[in-house]
Write a protein that binds this DNA or RNA. Structure first.
Lengths: 134, 134
DNA sequence: GTAATATATGAGCATGTATTCATATATTCA
DNA sequence: TGAATATATGAATACATGCTCATATATTAC
């Protein structure tokens, strides 16, 4: 039961500032639609946000990110730890690189990768907490 | 420059509990790989986590979620607010429904949708803060 | 009952994506 | 210089995905 369940319907509206939209053909749907459109994410932001989540929507990339937390790791060690081909790992690292999620540092023949975007790492960690309690 | 940059390398290892992995063929790579594999997300968790983020990786679904925050909305009003076809909206609602991200309530001819998974909504909001500061 | 409205869903299609394979580049070592 | 090692990348392929179109179901109104 909601913490507001004892409150009258019109008081409820004040608290939430939006009434529960109704879509019966006789009701004033136009007003509801206007209120909703004020909340609606614009396309540009929606696409930009979707790209962040898309980066986190693949198991291989999530596993890479789990390895790159706190440490620089070179490509070869990533391959070995994940048991994947060099090419597959390298392609995914490029993906993460192009989004600015990881940085890399060349040292001789080796290239060391690490997390660059701390905010993406926070999303990863928060999502992980969630996934483990399902 | 790192806040720990004045610390010796072996002290550094104690602080981070993991040395920076090295992958020169002459070094003991096996030890590094074992340490990394302890951090590596297992496949099952990685897939489960990727499914949560995949739900948030599409602009249409993100826009639907932005509308369903705080309010129940019926399908027809969602269509009108988003300017999309009934079918497209309904397909995406099914997707979100099957993942338990939204709930629905039938009332006569109408079906009202709302966010079910508060944790996913938190990921959405945290991601949005990030997207707006890029 | 029939018509109208609200929603759901299967099939098809166009596009996107993750991997593999082959190959390119760059660095070190002998 | 040539061989070996480390990484990157283009092309191809198999699979996933988001939309449209047609149609099904369910409820209400007449």
């Amino acid at each position: 039961m909601s913490m507001y369940s004892y409150i009258q319907c019109d008081e409820m509206e004040q608290i939430n500032s939006l009434p529960a939209p109704i879509c019966a053909p006789d009701a004033d749907e136009t007003a509801d639609i206007s209120l909703l459109q004020a909340k609606l994410l614009d396309m540009k932001t929606a696409i930009s946000l979707s790209e962040i989540f898309k980066a986190l929507s693949d198991p291989t990339r999530l596993r890479l990110i789990s390895l790159l937390a706190e440490n620089e790791v070179c490509v070869h060690t990533l391959e070995a730890a994940m048991g994947m081909t060099q090419s597959a790992v390298s392609h995914q690292l490029r993906y993460l690189r192009q989004l600015g999620i990881v940085r890399y540092r060349k040292e001789g023949r080796h290239v060391y990768y690490a997390i660059e975007d701390e905010h993406v790492q926070m999303l990863f960690e928060q999502g992980l907490l969630h996934a483990r309690h399902r």
